[in-house]
Design a protein around this nucleic acid. Structure first.
Lengths: 353, 353
DNA sequence: TTGAAAGCGCTAACAC
DNA sequence: GTGTTAGCGCTTTCAA
């Protein structure tokens, strides 16, 4: 009667209801629910299972976690969901979580220090088991504290240089090198690089570094005027392109270090009535679904985004479950990018994709 | 002493610790923490606040929620994170959640009925306050149950036709109409539509419906051979394009109902050595960052994705907080799409973007 | 103005 | 095999 009411007025059914209805104690229900079957009569088991099913009983994860101090939820803090690269990373994370029985909480830091701090705090209040973060790098004290507190977390994409923490990154030096080498092999000698302000952000610093190394190892010299550091404001990239293309020493190639930036560069070139690859060649960073449909099809540096996400999640879960045991998995993992050659460098059809 | 140990060996600090250290009871700490200040001595308040700060005390959200039966977490179930449309929706949802003090749990149904069911179940076990879902539509009994149980949820993008539930959608009939009308106004008469199998999925059905209506209201007849229903398998779109372009009654325009599909159509056209818009014109569904950089710049039907997400989250939160009170907010909201005219229809420069 | 105590739903010793 | 009990960390009457 009471039970039927529960269903009618839709009160939540708890373990006590199941216990009562099956005529056993809560502990018994709990045991059976958690697969601790070895010590129960087949009859009891069946009876309890039947009641659970009939009542459509769903154990309260809050209560469970409160007791066990384990939520099976991890968090991720990203900054630019809109960027294809990050949605791929997210997919990798999500897939892995699902396959490992974890839920995922997601937040957007928007590159703001305060938001990042709030989110981390919130995650900790929710007792999340761990955290994956593309850090703004604006809260060094915080990262340090997380690390000291042994809170399981993985920095993804961006390195925390002076902290001995777990990281999953892509080798950005090689990414830039392979792009520049390709341009040089295609006969280019005046190669410009476009990047957002490095500000201690490893992917930016390293792409610049790789750019320089590639030039130097080919006997080309690095010219400051070809290093274009642009802000993220609207139109800034196009302006820089315009100025560069009208300068006395116009480059014969541009290396773009960001996929959204690439589109703006393309726009800038078009606005100057110039054509790719005839007037100037171009390589973009990050493979995207649209790269091959641009005019001309774009040569890109491909980062294993999905794998990054998936690997970060796996590492984190490993960390969480091996808690205490100082495991011997490597702290820093660096994946390798690859070059997808299309027509924007003038070297047609070397690689059809 | 005990407290210092807590920090050293890093045990979690609880409300009892704060209480003890401040020399008050847990209730007092609780009150002050929750802004129930009116009934406390200024001295006590300051003392407690100071201890909270010193101990860096973070209230355990699990315990809190267990008591209050409110988690301030909502869930979202999506299927194609990779699609720009959905990452925009997600951003809208996330922003709104953050601004309203909610956390967000995210899952990928991958269009699989079983996964969808598992995720809903998991969300309920976690006591989430509500749910936003782009339903697979493969679990009608489940949606019905959610609705009957008065669980707060919003169906987004896809309609649940026979259920009286809250929905946020875009007017897909109008989206198709405006696209087709533009093609007709540009002098096209043989317009083909490409779509994935409708299968009762409203955006697909409605786009087809809008297509038909637009043709008919312009005195054009609907030809079955121009309605191309293609599967999502690799190469299927390109094959269909090839066949269509070689048929006796080649169309003079294609209306693509999906942004990824558009890229494949473009590829298919290119492979037949035909050019857009000279040989055939094209309108795509969903504005994307790359649309204007395609060759030629693509005319698209723009859906207010971010707004959809944001609105869905707002509605959901409203639902949650007005729980019980049958509020008078409309159950079904339909947003309007717009057309962004570029050059892929041959009508150059009517709208520069 | 503050404290004591019960209880949210579950788990895990420890009894029997 | 199964039940009893204590408590996870918090909120909230009810008393004082």
């Amino acid at each position: 009667m009471v039970l039927r009411e529960k269903r009618l007025i839709k009160m939540k059914v708890t373990i006590s209801d199941v216990a009562k209805m099956a005529g056993v104690s809560k502990s018994t229900v709990s045991r059976i629910m958690n697969g601790n079957l070895e010590q129960n009569t087949e009859g009891t088991i069946q009876r309890v299972l039947k009641v659970i099913d009939e009542l459509d009983y769903k154990p309260n994860a809050l209560a469970r976690s409160l007791k066990s101090t384990k939520t099976n939820v991890i968090g991720i803090i990203l900054s630019k969901l809109q960027n294809q690269f990050w949605s791929s990373v997210l997919e990798g994370v999500e897939d892995t979580c699902r396959n490992s029985g974890y839920n995922l909480m997601i937040c957007n830091s928007n590159e703001e220090a305060q938001l990042e701090e709030d989110h981390i705090r919130s995650f900790q209040m929710h007792q999340l088991d761990g955290l994956i973060i593309n850090p703004t790098l604006k809260n060094p004290h915080l990262y340090k504290k997380l690390s000291e507190d042994q809170f399981p977390f993985i920095a993804i994409n961006r390195k925390m240089y002076d902290l001995d923490v777990h990281m999953v990154t892509v080798n950005n030096i090689n990414g830039a090198k392979v792009a520049i080498q390709h341009l040089i092999d295609s006969g280019k000698t005046r190669i410009s690089i476009f990047l957002y302000p490095p500000d201690g952000i490893s992917p930016r610093l390293e792409r610049l570094e790789g750019y320089k190394q590639a030039l130097q190892s080919n006997g080309l010299k690095v010219s400051q005027s070809l290093i274009q550091i642009v802000g993220e404001g609207k139109g800034e990239v196009e302006d820089a392109v315009k100025k560069l293309l009208h300068s006395s020493d116009r480059p014969d190639a541009i290396f773009s270090t960001n996929n959204m930036m690439t589109l703006e560069i393309l726009e800038g070139i078009k606005n100057q009535q110039l054509k790719v690859p005839e007037d100037i060649t171009l390589v973009g960073y990050d493979e995207t679904i649209w790269a091959k449909h641009l005019n001309p099809p774009l040569t890109t540096v491909n980062q294993p985004a999905y794998e990054m996400g998936s690997l970060a999640a796996k590492k984190l879960i490993h960390l969480i479950e091996a808690k205490g045991v100082e495991s011997e998995i490597p702290k820093v993992v660096s994946l390798e990018p690859s070059l997808i050659i299309r027509e924007s460098c003038g070297s047609k059809l070397q690689h059809k994709n």
